[in-house]
Amino acid sequence: MNLFRLAGDMTHLVSVVVLLLKIHTIKSCAGVSLKTQELYALVFAARYLDLFVHFVSLYNTVMKLVFLASSFTIVWYMRRHKIVRRTYDKEHDTFRHHFIVLPCLVLGLLLNEKFTFREVMWAFSIYLEAVAILPQLVLLQRTRNIDNLTAQYVFFLGAYRVLYIFNWIYRYFTEPHFVHWISWIAGIVQTLLYGDFFYYYILSWKNNVKLELPA
């Protein structure tokens, strides 16, 4: 495992910890999109189907369990927790996320590395992950007062995607036959979606003002 990959996984982990910290300790999910969180829960459920079938390493197994458990925990908090759910900004979280699940499933059925259940689910999860951040980005645009933890959550999530691209470039030059169009194209699309956010995040950080995304 190269340093980019490890750094990517760690920023992914940090993003989840930041979000859980906000939800668990502040008991608030203001500015957090439940739609995006539900999509991530679905992404991990579909991708990690191989958890008990295909063993890679202890590291992989533990990380998969962490991402599965944390995504479902966050959804549970936002839907069921007495205090947290009242802070959910339902009116502004209106992205119709169900409508992107079906196209991703169709794409997974059409474009996959092998036409087996697990491979189709894997491709589906890659396509879905690429667009899962959209409801969150839309909600941020509509949020007047983006708190630091929410902004940091999205920043770390975006950083994870950027680092994964560096990881692929590194692997491409160091491993023979390392070509993966499906995840590369989906990964690049996913990273580009953060472009706008990164621009305004860095701007707000440089000028030391609160983050605000233009609608």
């Binding site: 998969k64 590395e113 993966h180 995840s183």
Partner: peptide, 10 residues
């Protein structure tokens, strides 16, 4: 195989 070595990513 080229298909399986990416499955070591998360």
């Amino acid at each position: 195989s080229s298909g399986s070595n990416l499955k070591d990513e998360l």
